[in-house]
Amino acid sequence: MNSFNSAESKRLGETVSSAASMTLFLIFAVCCLIIISVAATAYGRISRNYENTFDSTAAVRYITNKIRACGGAEIISENELLLRDVGYSTLIYHSGGAVYERLFPEGDTPVSSGGERLFGAEQLIIEEDGGLVRITVRDGDDVFTAFCKG
């Protein structure tokens, strides 16, 4: 009778221990999942931040460098810039969430369609400000503005 009782209590103890170990394992598994999801979110944020920053800053720098290298810059509208050069002109414009560039032979009327997609950007604003060109590019939360002589 006594040995039967001790076996029962032992079995109960083992069941409790087994449940505890199972719970610990589950807690560990859940923690692992949470850690992986947090890490994935952090990676997503860093990656998205890099892409947004890269697109916006590269667009501002590209336009700035094009203005510096061209013969003359003319602002056609808020998101269209025409860069004149010997034998050709370059139209940089914003359409459908991206910045495009299209080359035209000298004398042709530039039209904001087609061309090569350069960078993704939600907004591109090109303004004249006291003899300088102000370029603003927005992508996601990032807004970058720079002045450049026109």
Binding site: E14, S21, F25, F28, A29, C32, A42, Y43, S47
Partner: peptide, 27 residues
């Protein structure tokens, strides 16, 4: 067998560590 068998935890840790390492490297 009482509770979880031996080795599962180690396997899980290796998998999670590999995932985290890959994500950290990419970041």
């Amino acid at each position: 067998p009482a509770g979880i068998g031996t080795g599962y935890l180690s396997l899980m840790m290796i998998f999670v560590t590999l995932c985290l390492t890959a994500l950290a490297a990419l970041s």
